[in-house]
Design a protein around this nucleic acid. Structure first.
Lengths: 314, 314
DNA sequence: CAATCTTCTGCTCATGTGAGCAATATTCCC
DNA sequence: GGGAATATTGCTCACATGAGCAGAAGATTG
């Protein structure tokens, strides 16, 4: 397109989109036929000069969702818009809201739902509406009795989700990681614990988040790991954790010994499940999000626009 | 509008604007009649959830221009979009481009055009296209032989504008400000100088910019004023200068004695002129822009979106 | 310079869309 | 609970718009 045509297309776009003139009226003003005006507007769009944004906390980016599905083989992808968002916290809240919406709209509603714990899942639980499901048995899929935080965050997440679905919660009363392998094996041998883990394995659907591998990890906050341990894991290639298990960019367990001391379902059990919903958002989580998606750890991803774009670029 | 309707309007907008579905198709997806979809889309627009931006260096903001004209009584207002602009420099370049466009489109083309000098006017001269006018006599309206910068910026601005219009330039070979009143009076008594000033007074149109009152002022750079003098002017209420003359927010000369030593046309001569085009852009110039517009110093304002919004707010 | 190919222009026509208007549903108030 | 006021819905109709096409203008090549 010629240079003067480009300028004309901008003038036409101003009159069309900002002044709500018809193409006919614009034609009179710019001394063009209305067909020419129509073509100029089309070219302005094609050149990307017209940017249309939906500015709303609940807005999603459907084209990005489609591209994500196509390029990764995910069953479903939910991408919330980051238009007009300043903080990561706000973005994560939007993502949690979208995850709650997705869960609520899920048909058939899963009878048993396996969930992890953490800030994200807690946020999801808060965004769910009372009566979102007709009785769901919510099962914790990894250990998480907090050590030095106020206890019960993990439990309250599960209970809230279950309560709001008029269902019941099955808790996994165990730390996330044991210091000694023997203790972990002992607790797994317990009839109650074993029962919960069996229930978790057979859940119809899973919802979980993922943590980045850095000093701000929830596992550090909760006292299960030290900053030094995290640094060591990072040095060995860890990009983050899923249900308490640290993986590298290829989805492989970074520290098998540590993994053995971690209570909860195995990653392979997630890989085999038909419906696994990962909720991952925020600028620090791009690497772990990629690892989760690339290595079949989820069938559905709920995330934000920036993370989704990072996945598409890489 | 109800809460669920708001959410529906967002879903509809996603399908309409991002997926290019027809309202009919959206109706099928969301189980609504196509009229309901149309109404939801209209409400999404009315609520400001749909933001349409024209992203282009030449894009203008016509609605803001209209509001500016209405609220200030300007004959004309040109407001360039700041969408996608990072630096003030880029914004000022866009504004200069718009001023060049405005000059070029001006009918009838002024036979004599009075101009000031400075970074902005120089920028305008560069953006003008060869042959923009059929012979224009460009006259400098205020003194400006630079003292310690490379000389000729002021002169070259005038010459370039004239040359590109296939016209001629009349220079005002005088410093902007004299140290002593007697010297200034002497130079004004000179036949040549007096002739140029008379020509300047009677120009058919004026184009000028304005400077903010701070240490970065062009008059400080050029060595006519010291930072201390500027600080003193600010303390006395100065918000900036127009053709070398410092004014306060009410458009009044801040320092009459200094004003007397300044060479160029008087502000009242600008106020009486039928066509005075002020080109003012950048975040540091909001105050002086307001003073210029509010006190009738220009009939046409060329500025950027942010400055325009600041004018509308105050 | 002519022949061919390509791009651009003006138009017809089918479809998409918003204004306006009854009919219906909902809310409010006595 | 009844009746009025208000909001919502489904619709007709006129207008706005994009797709597709034939002819004109312009570029390219032998």
């Amino acid at each position: 397109m010629s240079d003067t045509d480009e300028l004309l297309s901008i003038r036409a776009a101003e009159l069309y989109y900002e002044e709500n003139q018809t193409q006919d009226e614009i034609g009179v003003i710019l001394r063009l036929t209305r067909w020419k005006v129509g073509r100029l507007l089309a070219s302005a769009k094609a050149n990307g000069f017209i940017r249309i944004e939906i500015v709303h906390p609940r807005a999603r980016r459907l084209p990005i969702e489609r591209r994500l599905r196509e390029s990764t083989g995910l069953t479903d992808a939910i991408v919330v818009s980051s238009a007009g968002v300043s903080s990561d916290t706000e973005l994560q809240s939007r993502t949690a809201q979208a995850a709650a919406d997705y869960l609520s709209a899920l048909r058939p509603t899963p009878r048993t739902l396996g969930i992890s714990w953490g800030r994200t899942l807690h946020d999801v639980s808060l965004h769910l509406k009372q009566g979102w499901g007709p009785g769901v048995n919510v099962v914790q899929i990894n250990g998480g009795v907090s050590l030095n935080q106020r206890t019960g965050t993990a439990a309250s997440t599960a209970v809230t989700i279950a309560h709001k679905a008029d269902g019941s919660a099955t808790l996994l009363p165990s730390p996330a990681i044991f210091e000694r392998l023997e203790t972990k094996q002992a607790i797994e041998a317990d009839r109650t614990i074993a029962g919960v883990l069996a229930l978790a394995r057979n859940a119809q659907a899973f919802v979980f988040s993922a943590g980045q591998a850095d000093a701000n990890s929830a596992l550090v906050d909760s006292g299960y790991l030290t900053v030094e341990q995290i640094n060591d894991l990072v040095a060995r290639g860890a990009v983050g954790d899923v249900v308490g298990r640290y993986i590298d960019r290829n989805g492989r367990i970074v520290d098998p010994e540590l993994n053995e001391r971690t209570v909860g379902i195995q990653l392979d059990q997630l890989r085999r499940a038909p419906l696994t919903i990962a909720v991952i958002s925020g600028h620090t989580k791009h690497a772990i999000a990629r690892a989760v998606v690339r290595n079949g750890l989820c069938t559905v991803l709920v995330t934000d626009e920036d993370t989704a774009n990072a996945l598409l670029k890489g």
